[in-house]
Amino acid sequence: MSGSLLEVRDLVQVHRLRGARGGSQTLRAVDGVSFEIGPGESVGLVGESGCGKSSLARALVQLPRPTEGEVRFRDQDLCRLRGGALLRARLGMQMVFQDPHSSVNPRMSVANIVAEPLRLRGGTGRRQVRARVRELLDMVRLPASRYEARRAGELSGGECQRVAVARALAGSPELLICDEAVSALDVSVQAQLLNLFEELRSELGLAYLFISHDLAVVRHMSDRVLFMYLGRICEEIDAGDLDRAPRHPYTAALMSLVPGTQRDRSVMALTGEPPSAASIPAGCRFHTRCWCARDQCATQEPALVATEQGGRVACLFPLAPQPEPVGDPLLSYRPPGP
């Protein structure tokens, strides 16, 4: 327990929405989530829209505060802290968001953006701040001489995202939460950013919570992957086991949908659309879309239990490990059938 950097226990986030026709709806965006991230570990979080992953990310940093649960960062429960204590305790966790242009104040210069966390913390002289800014820009491969003075509004998406990362690193955080950080970028720029994240991980020993809907990217970036569905974790699995041994039908189905995969996706077709968190199905949340649901699934909600591979799964009838796919899926091409 004390070895982990971040420990989340029974986190619940409830949103109250005003319905379209009056009245209010209660949305349990995060409905009891527990997991851990160790120092230097990269954990992926995957899910479709409405699964609550963004709500989870925001709840971790207390913006806004979760309704229930514990978020222990460096052994301090952020949910119980207030004001200055919270600000200080939270400094070790930084976020990188999806929209690069919205993540940086378009009217500020790059140097000021990156320097802001340093200035807010105080205690650093002007020369030191400047030096640190240069160091950070260097870390994200943005030559300081060319970028320092430019206004963020003039930069491209990839450049903005690098500035956002540099700013996030300013306070030497230990955990970087990337909420779809590369999803809005062109593929070639995305690859550059992913490489950057890996470099930073090895250079600085950063831990990551990498949130994305793109399984190919998550599989590449993470040590472990959490799959969320309707506010709960349905599977936690080692990234290396993703291809061969997904235990939860949802995981298997999502893996089959990764372009270029060998798996016959017609077998694992997910029926219907992702339901809304406002109306959660009875029994297993996933059973309405499950391709191998049985009667029991409609009445009994599975608990998250440990698996032999060291992961966790919430399924009454978890899948058995599957045979290894042969060769490079992309090269040994198989036309899909409708």
Binding site: Q94, P117, A170
Partner: peptide
């Protein structure tokens, strides 16, 4: 907007 959230995270 994310840059405001980021500023808060930085301690503003």
């Amino acid at each position: 907007r994310e840059f405001v959230v980021n500023a808060r995270l930085a301690g503003a």
